[in-house]
Nucleic acid binder design. Structure first.
Length: 213
DNA sequence: CCTATGATGATCT
DNA sequence: GATCATCATAGGT
């Protein structure tokens, strides 16, 4: 058949759909990250949907702020945030514009660029751990707030883009509660992953931290 | 394998 | 001042 179709860039229309349609559809897609050291490719294996202002688990739940403003903009752009004083996480904004929904990219398998990733993720004990978790994924791909708001459907010449790849069969897509999300947003099964893939991160329930003295 | 905890600072109330 | 879409490490099983 047509092997070339596996590497077509995703379009704006792909992202201009309800986030619960886009999120599972991103599994198996190829995230391309081009750094000064060259191109990297990551096959997405785990994502989470965040449904904007109606979703208590979303950064957009309490409306627009300086941090989350790109979520309120057009679909097909990156939303990168800094958290826990140390880490970055990468999301892709979904449509329609103004809905402020997005997909957190939680894990994947690195193909091209593994040598770059090993240098940044020096504590990883094996290649399956290079991007096993959202902050690990961002670290491996050298993603930080400088990449907030990047158009990811402008083509692979940019710093971030997504190619069609090969989606898994529907019966290999699983869903369950989102990792680390508490409160009223904790029970929606809006985490999606490829069943049995060794790069999927372990589920962790939200733990309210006791304040230290 | 598992659970517990400190790190560290931007963000929001 | 509290919270946080997390991770690495230490120590138990």
């Amino acid at each position: 058949m047509n092997e070339g179709m596996e590497r077509t860039p995703l379009t704006r229309d792909f992202f201009d759909r309800p986030v619960l349609d886009v999120a599972p559809d991103l599994l198996g897609r190829i995230l391309v990250r081009t750094t000064d050291a060259g191109p990297m490719e990551l096959r997405l294996t785990e994502v989470e949907a965040y449904a904007g202002e109606i979703d208590p688990g979303s950064h957009a739940f309490r409306g627009r702020t300086a941090r989350n403003s790109v979520m309120f903009g057009p679909p097909g752009h990156s939303y990168v945030y800094f958290t826990y004083g140390m880490w970055h996480c990468l999301n892709l904004v979904c449509g329609p514009e103004g809905r402020a929904s997005g997909v957190l990219l939680r894990a994947g398998e690195i193909g091209i660029g593994a040598e770059q990733a090993r240098k940044r993720r020096f504590s990883a004990r094996n290649d399956r751990e290079l991007a096993k978790g959202p902050a690990r994924l961002a670290t491996a791909l050298d993603v930080d707030r400088a990449l907030n708001g990047v158009d990811v459907v402008a083509g692979p010449q940019g710093p971030l883009s997504v190619l069609t790849g090969t989606p898994p069969p529907r019966d290999q897509v699983r869903s369950g509660p989102r990792t680390g999300v508490g409160g009223d947003g904790s029970h929606q099964p809006w985490r999606f992953w490829i069943d049995g893939d060794p790069t999927v991160s372990p589920y962790r329930a939200h733990v309210p931290r006791r304040r230290s003295t």
